[in-house]
Computed example of a mutant assay.
Amino acid sequence: MAILQANLHHAIAASAVIEKIFSEGGLDIALIQEPWINADSMVAGLNNAELCSEDTVTAYVEVKGPNRSKVLFCSAYLPGDKQDPTEELTNVLEYSRRQKSELIVGCDANAHHTIWGSSDTNMRGELLSDFLLSNCLQVLNNGHTPTFVTKTRQEVIDITFATENVSKCITKWHVSSENSMSDHRHIRFDISGLVEAQYPRVRNPKDTSWDMYMSP
């Protein structure tokens, strides 16, 4: 599976680039933030797209193969005016756990941390980093190639993270050099070799029929 992550900056041209990549068959899933929307607040320019909330889009996917794998894909925009960037992410993570599914998140974090390649670390970055570490979520960013580029500023503020099992199946993560027609560069990665998530089996002695167990 070929995945692309991008902040479209509400731009028609940036949406057209994504549509072109889809039409050429070079993409399976796009995790987009700040899409181009029409007067009815519907995503415009991209086929078969649905908004789940103002800042978060999720898609529950069952990947077919020798072992069917359940994966929740999430695209999130974390507004910079909120002190705590993890509120909506917490809801998504709790849902994935209830569904016993893997989770992959692509987000415009508006947060700095050297863990994902930023030039410095700020308070939002600390909060988001603590959230990821405490929930055993793996940051997939590598290197220091800026994801946000303007004439006056370059920084890494777009990150990708995933649950531990599926993170082992993600390869070729990189910041693309292709023209995105946005102030955010495209992030590309592949997913291969997905397997069914394993959950430990637990026996509860309170549910045991001891009379039947002890009978000859």
Rank of each mutant, 00 (worst) to 15 (best):
Ala2Asp: 14
Ile3Pro: 01
Leu4His: 00
Gln5Ala: 06
Ala6Asp: 01
Asn7Val: 13
Leu8Asn: 10
His9Thr: 07
His9Asn: 15
Ser15Met: 10
Ser15Trp: 05
Ile18Thr: 09
Ile18Gln: 04
Lys20Asp: 15
Phe22Asn: 04
Asp28Leu: 06
Ala30Phe: 06
Leu31Lys: 03
Ile32Trp: 08
Gln33Arg: 02
Glu34Ala: 10
Glu34Thr: 07
Trp36Tyr: 15
Ile37Pro: 00
Ile37Cys: 14
Asn38Pro: 11
Asn38Leu: 10
Asp40Ala: 13
Met42Ala: 12
Val43Met: 12
Gly45Trp: 05
Leu46Met: 05
Cys52Glu: 11
Cys52Ser: 13
Ser53Gln: 03
Glu54Phe: 08
Thr56Val: 15
Val57Thr: 11
Thr58Lys: 06
Ala59Asp: 07
Ala59Tyr: 13
Lys64Gly: 09
Gly65Tyr: 10
Gly65Leu: 09
Pro66His: 09
Arg68Ala: 12
Val71Tyr: 07
Val71Cys: 06
Cys74Asp: 05
Cys74Lys: 06
Cys74Pro: 05
Asp81Gly: 00
Lys82Thr: 04
Glu87Ala: 07
Glu88Lys: 13
Leu89Glu: 01
Thr90Lys: 12
Leu93Asn: 01
Arg97Asp: 01
Arg98His: 04
Arg98Lys: 10
Gln99Ser: 10
Gln99Val: 08
Ser101Met: 13
Leu103Tyr: 04
Ile104Lys: 00
Val105Glu: 08
His112Ala: 03
Trp116Cys: 07
Trp116Lys: 04
Ser119Leu: 12
Thr121Glu: 12
Thr121Tyr: 09
Thr121Phe: 13
Met123Thr: 14
Met123Asp: 13
Met123Gln: 14
Arg124Ser: 06
Glu126Arg: 15
Leu127His: 04
Leu128Gly: 02
Asp130Trp: 00
Leu132Val: 05
Asn135Ile: 02
Asn135Met: 00
Asn135Arg: 01
Val139Ala: 03
Asn141Met: 08
Asn142Tyr: 10
Gly143Trp: 13
Gly143His: 12
Thr145Met: 09
Thr147Glu: 02
Thr147Ser: 07
Val149Cys: 11
Lys151Gly: 10
Thr152Leu: 09
Arg153Cys: 04
Arg153Gly: 00
Ile157Trp: 04
Thr160Trp: 02
Phe161His: 03
Glu164Ala: 09
Val166Thr: 13
Lys168Gln: 14
Thr171Glu: 05
Lys172Asn: 15
Trp173Met: 07
Trp173Lys: 01
His174Thr: 09
His174Val: 02
Val175Ala: 07
Ser180Val: 05
Ser180Ile: 06
Ser180Phe: 08
Ser182Cys: 08
His186Leu: 15
Ile187His: 05
Ile187Trp: 09
Asp190Gln: 14
Asp190Glu: 15
Ile191Glu: 05
Ile191Asp: 08
Val195Ile: 12
Glu196Lys: 15
Tyr199Pro: 01
Tyr199Thr: 06
Val202His: 03
Pro205Gly: 02
Pro205Gln: 03
Asp207Gly: 00
Asp207Leu: 14
Ser209Leu: 11
Pro216Trp: 04
